Amino acid sequence: MWLSPDQLADRRERAATAALEAGRAAGLDADRATVLHDVFSVVVHLEPTPVVARIPVVLPPGYTPQLQHARQQRELDVVAWLDAHRVPVVPTSPLVPRTPVRHGGFGMTFWELADVAADHEPYSGVAIAESARLHAGLAGYPGPLPFLAPFNEAAPGMFAHLEPCDLLGAADIERARAEYAALRGVLADPTVFAARYPGVGLQAVQGDGPSHNVIRTTDGIRFSDFEDVSLGPVEWDLAMLGPEAVAEYDDAADRLGLRRTDAGVQQLMDAARRLQFISCVTLVPRLPVLAEGLASVIESWRATDSHAAPN
C-alpha cells in the first residue's frame, strides 16, 4: 500500500517529535524541531541549539534496529575520523555522545549545524575531482567496514520482497534476480573480488554517490551522508556517472597520486549499482517520489543485454 500525502506528513511529524524528545533527553536545550529535509531521512534542526538530527524513515524490509544501529555507528566513527584528519565533512555534534539513539521507534544520529551557503541545493553535484580528494582521505581509515554494504547488506532483502508492479513485470524480476545472484558470486566476498581483480585495491568508500552528497557551506563544500560507507573499490562511488565523469576522476587521481580506475571493474560496479537501484522498487510505496527516477533506471537496464555472470 502506497503511503498517502497525509501519511507521509504524519511520519515526518512523528520523526521530528522523536528527535526533539531524544535531544532533550540527551541534555539539549531545544524547544522545537524544524524540518530541513525529508526523503529517505527526515532531517531536523533542534532549535535553538546548533544541532541537526537525521532520522531514517525509509528502511529496507527486514532491516532490524540492530543492523541500523551498526550502520549508523559506522557512519559516526568514519566521519569523526575524517574530521580529525581535516577532510571537509559535516561533523558529528560535540554536544551529545557520538552514538546512535533510538526513540519513539526511530533510530537517529546528531550532527553539527552547517552554515549553509546561499547557493546550496540538495543533491546538486560538485566536480568529480572532489570524489578523488575524498578517496585520498578515506584511504587511511583503519576501522573495519563491510564489503559493499549497499549491495550486500540491504539489497538481498529487497530482492526477496520484489513483486510485479507498474514498474517491474514478472519477467523483469526474474532477470534482475538472476543477474544479482551472478554478481553476488564475485561481490559478496572481498577475497573473491580481490582474486578476480588482483590489481584493484580496496579501501573505505563513501558508498552513495559522494559527488552529490555534499553541502555547500560558507567556507566551502563538505561531504555528508556516509550511511553506506563501505570497503570497496573506488569505482563503486563512480557507478552510473558515465565515462566523462570517470575520465575526470582519473585526471584528478593522477594529480593526487591515486590509482586510476579499472574499466572492467567500473563496468561491474555500474551493473551492480543499477541492480541495487532496481531492488529499491520495494521502497516506492513508502517513498512514492522514488518511482519517477527508478523508472528511467529500469528502462535503461531493459535496453542492456541480459547476462548471467560478470566478465
Rank of each mutant, 00 (worst) to 15 (best):
S4G: 04
V52N: 00
A245N: 10
L46T: 12
S306V: 13
G107D: 14
F110A: 05
L148F: 09
L168A: 07
P48M: 12
S41A: 15
D29W: 06
W2I: 09
A19C: 06
A16C: 04
T64L: 14
L8P: 01
F159Q: 04
A272E: 01
P310M: 06
D119G: 10
D305P: 05
A9S: 14
L46V: 10
T282S: 14
V35I: 14
L187C: 09
R32V: 14
D270I: 04
D225C: 05
L183V: 01
P156N: 14
E130D: 13
W301N: 10
V51Y: 05
P164D: 05
H85T: 11
P48R: 09
A171Y: 08
N152W: 12
A204D: 04
R32T: 15
T191D: 15
D31R: 11
A176E: 09
D10V: 08
L290R: 07
P146L: 11
V205P: 01
H103P: 01
D31S: 13
A22K: 00
L168Y: 05
Q7I: 01
V281P: 03
A245Q: 07
T261K: 03
R259H: 09
P190C: 07
R302P: 06
R273I: 00
E112G: 06
P198F: 03
L241V: 02
P198A: 06
R102G: 08
D225V: 10
V101G: 00
V234S: 00
S41Q: 03
R216W: 11
D166S: 11
L134W: 12
A239Y: 07
V200Y: 00
D77A: 15
Y141E: 12
M269Q: 02
L76G: 04
R255L: 15
N152P: 05
A154F: 08
H45L: 12
P48N: 13
H135I: 12
W2G: 02
N213G: 09
E75D: 03
V281K: 01
I278M: 13
V192G: 06
I215W: 01
H161Q: 14
A308E: 08
A139Q: 15
G220H: 11
E179I: 04
R24I: 11
R222L: 07
G169V: 06
L258S: 03
A263C: 07
R86V: 13
D237G: 07
R274C: 15
L162H: 02
A132F: 05
R175T: 13
P288W: 03
Y249F: 15
P156E: 13
P243Y: 04
Y180T: 03
F159T: 04
V205N: 00
A160V: 10
A308S: 12
A195I: 01
L202V: 01
A195Q: 12
H103Q: 15
A19D: 07
V246I: 15
P97K: 11
A154V: 12
P56W: 08
D251A: 15
E47K: 14
A295V: 03
P94V: 13
M269I: 00
L36C: 05
